[in-house]
Design a protein around this nucleic acid. Structure first.
Lengths: 230, 230
DNA sequence: CGGTTTTGTAACAATATGATGACATGGCCG
DNA sequence: CGGCCATGTCATCATATTGTTACAAAACCG
């Protein structure tokens, strides 16, 4: 029943018990949870399967959370992943240091699980608005994730399920170029094997659907790279 | 020390004394501060002079902060302005309600001024170009890796895939001289065999693309060594 | 100023890439 | 069961991109 593909959270916490509790709750929130018990693993997992958001414990043996945060925020390709830092350090200096390092939020242990979930949703809302039902708009195209309806101008468009998910992805980040592989991950699912040329065909179908009542083609083919909206 | 333009914060708080303190500190942080003493004024001021971020007191006579927040988050044109909610209500339900309403952060009174400033900077960091995407710039050339677009002045350039990768390489380290072999490695790939003279041809093509709308040739040939940008 | 080396570039053939129509499959619903 | 829709794959077509070569131009050197 996921509108598009399930949002992914990377949970980094060295204490297994705490990790369990959080993982359970995050799953209940609708996240797919990827877990790491230390900083090194976290960095590896980010490359392997880019998460939508990261929840990061400050205190960890070896690579501290703050160091992981610093590194991720230095890399252009991971910089924009929201990081929520968890910490038992309640001192003002620490909180400020965490935020200065690039963390997008800072939550003090012991935290309220409900509040943490709410803060996770806030970050998710930023990165993937459609997962929480925000209507996406671009130019004269409107996509309502709740009702699964797409409008262009003032007429309703008819799209198939795959085309809908494709368009959702594009509208999450207008202008961004998605490779066929990224689209397969996002639109089809991680462990589905389909030929990457299939993407072409669906792009074609999406184009036809978007132009069924006239109007310009809003999709851009980027030779050698993929496709983008606008 | 202002960046491109001074960031603007809209400060909404009905208690003049508190507002003063915050305004003072925000100005010290480098913000231009626009003040409102109630919700109605806040909504008017947003239209008049769109702020980069909003700091919003929950408890206000007439229009409450949460209502202002709700309204701003419903309008597509103001939805993306980050809102930091200030509140004396420490109850979990309230905090969650604030976040659910669309606030991007929720700070409990009495707050640490320094922490609030840090949180304001976090929100600002998001809105400012630096976070929106890493754009490489040199002179009047702009290259956006995310959208795969290249601009010169204010017109869009059309480049082929190889030319794009070439230019990306140059723009990552403007001024650096790259040998043909290094370029082959970097742009074509480590284990591809192509004549090194092919680089010349592509440099030529890149030059033509870069000058398609007039302008100087930004590439420099270094005899016996290779090529460089600028 | 030759002679030599290095670079620029037009032309062309080979290739890679994307668009599209057709088709077979499989699920779903009446 | 039969029709309908969505989907994935394939074959084919059109075109953009690419590598190479050959020759012209420029730079360098004594």
């Amino acid at each position: 029943m996921a509108h598009t593909s399930q949002p992914v959270v990377l949970l980094v916490e060295d204490e297994p018990a705490q990790r369990e509790v959080l993982a359970y709750n995050l799953e209940a929130e609708g996240f797919r949870v990827v877990q790491a018990g230390n900083g090194e693993d976290a960095l590896l997992l980010v490359d392997e399967d880019t998460p939508d958001i990261i929840i990061l414990d400050w205190m960890m043996p070896e690579l501290s959370g703050i160091e992981v945060c610093r590194r991720l925020k230095m890399r252009p390709d991971t910089r924009s992943i929201p990081i929520i830092m968890l910490s038992a350090r309640a001192e003002e200096v620490d909180r400020i240091r965490g935020l200065e390092t690039g963390a997008d939020d800072y939550v003090i242990k012991p935290y309220s699980v409900l509040e943490l979930m709410a803060r996770a949703r806030v970050q998710l809302r930023r990165v993937r608005p459609s997962t929480i039902g925000v209507v996406l708009e671009w130019d004269d195209i409107r996509l309502d994730p709740e009702t699964h309806r797409v409008y262009r101008g003032n007429s309703v468009l008819k799209l198939g399920p795959t085309e809908f998910r494709l368009l959702s992805t594009f509208m999450e980040k207008p202008g961004r170029v998605w490779s066929r592989e990224q689209l397969l991950d996002r639109v089809w699912g991680r462990d589905i094997y389909v030929d990457s040329r299939t993407v072409d065909v669906h792009i074609g179908r999406l184009r036809k659907s978007l132009m069924q009542n006239g109007g310009e083609d809003p999709l851009r083919t980027v030779r050698g790279a993929g496709y983008a909206l606008g």
